[in-house]
Design a protein around this nucleic acid. Structure first.
Length: 676
DNA sequence: TTAGGGTTAG
């Protein structure tokens, strides 16, 4: 008997299944009593990872011991077979075997995973009656963790407070619960409490509190916990490092995050991803792309977290070609089908002005959800496809999906960019009557733009009055509408009102200067310019860029410093002469300087978007690809008209993304139908 | 012979 016991123990220790099976057969042949060795064999099979065989023996075993029940239950839980674990637990109670601390520490995880709170609460009551809740740290931790997973932080806290001997794992479970539900302040409080009680935090604790510091932007605590990581000798623990660099990037200390990453001896795929995410969130998209390439070179496989982040980096910089390469990687890795990655792809194609590609990703989705539909509506909105956006909005409602604040911003933007005034007003009143969605400043900005551009200035101004603490952006939106319609007096009236709220807003001053300039009121322009000087405001220079063969070329208005300036100017003059024959007439009201007419015309020619297009046409001569240019400000009316003629003249499709939206020029027509 | 907590995304 002792020989079998020790043999089984050896097999379990070495995880040697073949020997275990041989011992098992030997026991059966020897005629020894199964009840004497059953428990040992079951333990052996569990340790060798063969749960099915353990279960078979368990079902045949008479007089099952509590330890064997516990082993069966916990082995099922740890392998994710939660339903079977709960079934075993219920059988155990049915047979009159009372659970102990080991049983409870395993079973609460199963209830949390299956998602039936009431069953978990019933087991909690039993643990309470049997006296395990306050006396056993393992049980208490499992209950705290379960309540946290059910989003019942108050219950978790009540249990935590009742426990007599709190240890590091129990405290960490509560901290994690708080941090995962957005209660970062509470997480830090528990951390301070444990430090006061002289409970030593470990790598699990530190990883979590660092995330909370990051979420709170609390660099002071973050840095002192960094010190603790070093002091505790946890610098080489990957999760602590991941949380550290996340903390720094969330506190906008991207350089520190880079420093942490560069000092790592090893980085897991999670660490690489966190690093990339931090870079993207801090506007370091280009660095993020090169880090992503480095990650691939190091044979670290990206997952849907990584891919959706890097796709967002491509969206921000409108890097279509790189984005397409990452789309291919996504497909190769089978990550397409993940809702976050798919939404990021739709977003990318929308941001790059390739709506048909966004739609093709959208059409390939097996299941539509709020995020994918929002992404598609936004793609339509930016590109001026108002009716398509509205159709999708209807489809969303028919599917029974409730629109959220993001949906409404996108749909209002869609109405705005397509000039669908009545539709926009209807949707805005719908949001007002629908108490599930709160109206934000963004919704108001969109409506003010829509109304202003439809010359409904008074209605727009009334909307601004409705907003608590209106910001300068709202007024600037209205002033921009005045500019489009040449309403100088109206603009002055709004400017006076606006100055009460945001007297030092540079954007508004510049806008009013431009309104005076386009109306030819040069005296007022001079006055405004001196006010702007007094405020020490700087106007951001107009800039356009174009990506050709993976190289980005940037152009500023009037700047002829490009190494190919000679070719660009030659092409530009040729284009201007040819489009004039087609009917292009330079419109000098877009020149915001007091110059002679002839000088005004030549200053129009050197607008940054014209330089970028001339360069792109020269560089891609003989190809028939779409030209994509990007501009930091809004495209000017004269350039808009010029590009239409150029698209007609050359037969090339031109897509321009300005600060607000896309313009697709084809055969002399723009997708915005001259409304922007 | 049996047990607990962590890091990344829209």
């Amino acid at each position: 008997m002792n020989l079998y016991t020790s043999l089984i123990a050896q097999c379990a220790h070495k995880k040697s299944l073949t020997t275990l099976k041989a011992v098992h057969t030997h026991i059966l042949k020897s005629g020894s009593l199964f009840s004497d060795f059953g428990h040992k064999l079951i333990d052996g099979y569990i340790k060798c990872g063969i749960i099915a065989e353990a279960r078979k023996l368990f079902d045949e075993l008479p007089n099952r011991h509590i330890v064997t029940w516990n082993s069966m239950i916990s082995s099922h839980v740890s392998r994710g077979k939660t339903k079977e674990a709960i079934e075993l637990y219920n059988n155990m109670l049915f047979e009159g075997v009372l659970p102990d601390a080991y049983t409870f520490s395993a079973i609460f995880k199963a209830f949390a995973e299956v998602g039936v709170l009431s069953h978990g609460q019933k087991a909690h009551a039993l643990a309470l009656v049997l006296g395990f809740e306050v006396s056993d740290g393992f049980v208490a931790t499992a209950i705290v963790d379960m309540y946290a997973k059910f989003d019942r932080m108050r219950d978790a806290r009540l249990v935590f407070d009742r426990v007599l001997d709190k240890d590091v794992v129990l405290c960490t479970a509560l901290i994690v619960g708080y941090n995962q539900h957005g209660f970062d302040g509470e997480a830090l409080e528990v951390f301070e409490e444990m430090v006061d009680r002289r409970i030593k935090p470990n790598e699990y604790t530190l990883a979590s509190v660092l995330v909370s510091c990051g979420n709170l932007g609390d660099l002071i605590n973050g840095k002192s916990i960094h010190g603790l990581v070093v002091k505790s000798g946890l610098e080489s623990v990957v999760a602590s490092q991941t949380s550290l660099l996340t903390m720094y990037s969330k506190c906008s200390k991207v350089e520190d995050s880079i420093k942490v990453f560069n000092q790592l001896a090893y980085a897991s795929h999670v660490t690489w991803t966190s690093f990339i995410v931090g870079l993207v969130q801090n506007g370091r998209e280009e660095v993020a792309v090169s880090v992503f390439r480095e990650m691939i070179r190091c044979s670290i496989i990206p997952n849907h977290f990584t891919l959706s982040s890097i796709l967002h980096a491509c969206s921000s910089l409108a890097m279509l070609e790189v984005g397409e390469q990452i789309h291919a990687v996504t497909m190769k890795l089978g990550v397409d089908g993940n809702k976050y990655a798919d939404a990021a792809l739709i977003h990318l194609y929308g941001k790059c002005g390739t709506v048909e590609k966004a739609r093709s990703v959208f059409d390939s989705l097996n299941e539509l959800d709020l995020v994918s539909i929002n992404s598609m509506i936004y793609a339509y909105a930016q590109n001026g496809f108002g009716h398509e956006a509205l159709q999708l909005f209807e489809r969303m409602k028919n599917l029974g999906l409730a629109p959220n604040a993001v949906t409404f911003i996108s749909i209002l933007l869609a109405c705005n960019n397509a000039g669908l005034v009545e539709e926009g007003c209807q949707i805005f009143s719908f949001i007002r009557d629908n108490h599930n969605v709160e109206l934000t400043r963004d919704h108001f900005t969109c409506m003010i733009d829509l109304l202003g551009r439809a010359r409904r200035f008074e209605e727009a101004a009334m909307l601004i009055e409705e907003v608590k603490n209106p910001d300068a952006i709202l007024w600037r939106t209205l002033l921009n509408a005045c500019k489009i319609h040449g309403e100088v007096e109206m603009a002055e009236k709004f400017m006076r009102k606006m100055l009460d709220h945001a007297p030092e807003d540079g954007g508004t001053h510049i806008l009013l200067t431009n309104i005076y300039a386009s109306a030819g009121k040069w005296d007022s322009v001079i006055e405004m310019k001196s006010a702007i000087r007094d405020l020490r405001l700087k106007k951001s220079p107009a800039m356009s860029w174009v990506d050709i063969d993976r190289e980005v070329h940037t152009f500023m208005a009037g700047d002829l410093s490009h190494p190919r300036a000679h070719e660009i100017l030659k092409m530009l003059h040729e284009l201007v002469e040819k489009v004039k024959n087609l009917g292009y007439n330079p419109d000098t009201k877009f020149v915001l300087q007091d110059l002679e007419e002839e000088k005004k015309i030549s200053s129009l020619y050197y607008h940054s978007e014209k330089l970028a297009i001339a360069f792109a046409l020269w560089k891609t001569c003989g190809r028939n690809t779409t030209i994509r240019i990007f501009k930091n400000l809004r495209v000017c009316g004269d350039c808009h008209s010029w590009i239409k003629f150029v698209s007609l003249l050359t037969g090339r499709d031109i897509v321009a993304r300005d600060a607000k939206r896309f313009h697709h020029f084809k055969g002399g027509i723009c997708s915005c139908k001259d409304y922007w």
